[in-house]
Amino acid sequence: MNIRHLLEKDALPVKRVINEWWGGRDMIQMVPRLFFQHFNDTSFVAERDGEMIGFIIGLRSQSRANEAYIHFIGVHPGYRKEGVAGMLYERFFQTALANNEAVTVRCITSPINKASVAYHKAMGFEVVSGTENEDGLHVQSDYDGDGVDRVAFVRTITREDMPNVLCEEV
């Protein structure tokens, strides 16, 4: 598997597969071209045999010096449970740590995306306290508009959390 920086030319290929990768949910609006134009240094694509099998879109906060944010991650359904997401997260974490000893990483997901909630918890992310919903999960009510709740996550990453070397070929 090869992991490389996300490029503007990746916008259309991501848009072509994103709804399929999300089981038919309309997700195209979540990945506007601006992410492919302005966050290349902190966003990555995983490829196998020239095929895109995953991507992560993240950024360093311009307002909070020691924080980073993961906007979106996707893995081709046929490659899930093969460590693709973990490698993309690791690359993002290392990039976010480039000039810091520690960085707080934040991300969100929809409360209906149980697999995402479970994955983030397993990766060591903590759910940010919020209004508890009927499933006992803390959500941020109206986070993205009226009735659009989100589960917010936070994790602090340190240099000790990361391997010493990250090669382009993983």
Score class of each variant (00 low, 15 high):
residue 54 G to D: 02
residue 46 A to Q: 15
residue 30 M to Y: 09
residue 35 F to V: 02
residue 53 I to D: 09
residue 36 F to G: 08
residue 60 R to C: 05
residue 31 V to N: 07
residue 40 N to W: 07
residue 42 T to M: 05
residue 54 G to C: 01
residue 37 Q to P: 08
residue 35 F to Q: 00
residue 48 R to T: 08
residue 33 R to H: 14
residue 30 M to A: 15
residue 47 E to T: 14
residue 36 F to Y: 14
residue 32 P to S: 07
residue 55 F to N: 06
residue 40 N to T: 10
residue 58 G to Q: 05
residue 29 Q to N: 14
residue 57 I to R: 05
residue 53 I to W: 00
residue 31 V to Q: 08
residue 42 T to G: 04
residue 55 F to G: 06
residue 31 V to Y: 13
residue 36 F to P: 11
residue 60 R to F: 00
residue 35 F to S: 01
residue 44 F to I: 11
residue 38 H to Q: 15
residue 47 E to Q: 12
residue 52 M to A: 04
residue 60 R to S: 02
residue 29 Q to D: 12
residue 52 M to G: 03
residue 51 E to G: 07
residue 44 F to Y: 15
residue 38 H to I: 04
residue 33 R to C: 10
residue 48 R to M: 10
residue 53 I to N: 10
residue 41 D to N: 05
residue 38 H to L: 06
residue 56 I to P: 04
residue 36 F to V: 13
residue 53 I to L: 13
residue 52 M to I: 04
residue 53 I to S: 12
residue 32 P to I: 06
residue 52 M to C: 07
residue 53 I to R: 10
residue 33 R to P: 03
residue 51 E to K: 13
residue 42 T to S: 08
residue 43 S to V: 06
residue 38 H to G: 04
residue 59 L to E: 04
residue 42 T to H: 06
residue 33 R to L: 15
residue 35 F to A: 02
residue 59 L to N: 02
residue 59 L to S: 14
residue 56 I to L: 10
residue 49 D to E: 08
residue 58 G to D: 04
residue 37 Q to I: 14
residue 29 Q to E: 14
residue 36 F to L: 09
residue 41 D to K: 02
residue 54 G to H: 00
residue 49 D to G: 00
residue 58 G to S: 01
residue 47 E to A: 10
residue 52 M to T: 03
residue 41 D to V: 02
residue 36 F to Q: 06
residue 43 S to L: 10
residue 34 L to S: 07
residue 36 F to I: 15
residue 30 M to S: 12
residue 39 F to Y: 12
residue 45 V to H: 01
residue 50 G to M: 03
residue 34 L to V: 12
residue 59 L to C: 15
residue 45 V to F: 01
residue 49 D to L: 03
residue 49 D to S: 03
residue 54 G to F: 00
residue 50 G to H: 09
residue 33 R to Q: 14
residue 34 L to R: 14
residue 56 I to W: 00
residue 47 E to H: 07
residue 34 L to F: 14
residue 43 S to F: 07
residue 39 F to S: 10
